[in-house]
Amino acid sequence: MNRSGLFWTQLRALVWKDLQIERHTKQSIGIMLMFAIVAVVTFNFALENNLGAVREVAGGLLWVTILLAGTLGLNRSFASELENRPIDAMLIAPMDRSTMFMGKVISVSLFTLAMELILIPVFIAISNKPFYRPEVLLLITLGTIGYVAAGVLVSSMAVQTRANYVLVPVLLLPLSLPVVLAAATGVAQYMGLNKPPFADVSATFALVIAYDLLMLAAGLFTYNYVVEE
């Protein structure tokens, strides 16, 4: 098998492996979703069940929920790599470390997006805001990918430290805020009755895409220094 053929086989194997584990345990998406709903209920309590207030800040609430639920999904995903250390068996396989990074980013993104697929209708129901607009969904998807890319990089380091998972939110939330702020700004612009002209939101799209590309590049180039000793 040639090198690029092997790359695709390996990438598919890595993603398929995470999907199989999820099929058997049904934990990542389940835990994220449960947490997300608990968070939404808690926010309502903080906003004193004021539907008007919820409506005002719905976009921000959605992002905060995704961020916090996302750290749980990352934790779950890395827990399965560390129990019995199958990661060592992967490291001695003839595989580029960047493939491992890509595989993790793809599978955790899929889980997070699956969680969002259920979370977004909930938000539409409680806030009556047009989260269903394709541009909004695109922004959320792009934002999620950037967030997960940073998350995979940071979690891979955090689980090798004394502080373990506790370090993940501390490192990941600040690091991912630039993309989330840009994406949230973009989403907020779409929450009005009329769609804004694309020229008005192109800047936020550009920032989100720039962050995604930069973070993916950083991960691809540095991941072997993260997992190899």
Binding site: M1, G5, L6, T9, Q10, R12, A13, W16, K17, Q20, I21, H24, T25, S80, E83, N84, R85, P86, D88, A89, M90, I92, A93, P94, M95
Partner: peptide, 26 residues
């Protein structure tokens, strides 16, 4: 490599585990 850790995924079946590593080696 065989170590005192199993280096296998506890949540996958025996066949799925081997299948995964077979794919990694192409």
């Amino acid at each position: 490599l065989v170590s005192h850790h199993a280096l296998l995924y506890g949540d996958m079946t025996a066949a799925e585990n081997l299948m995964f590593f077979a794919r990694l080696y192409g």
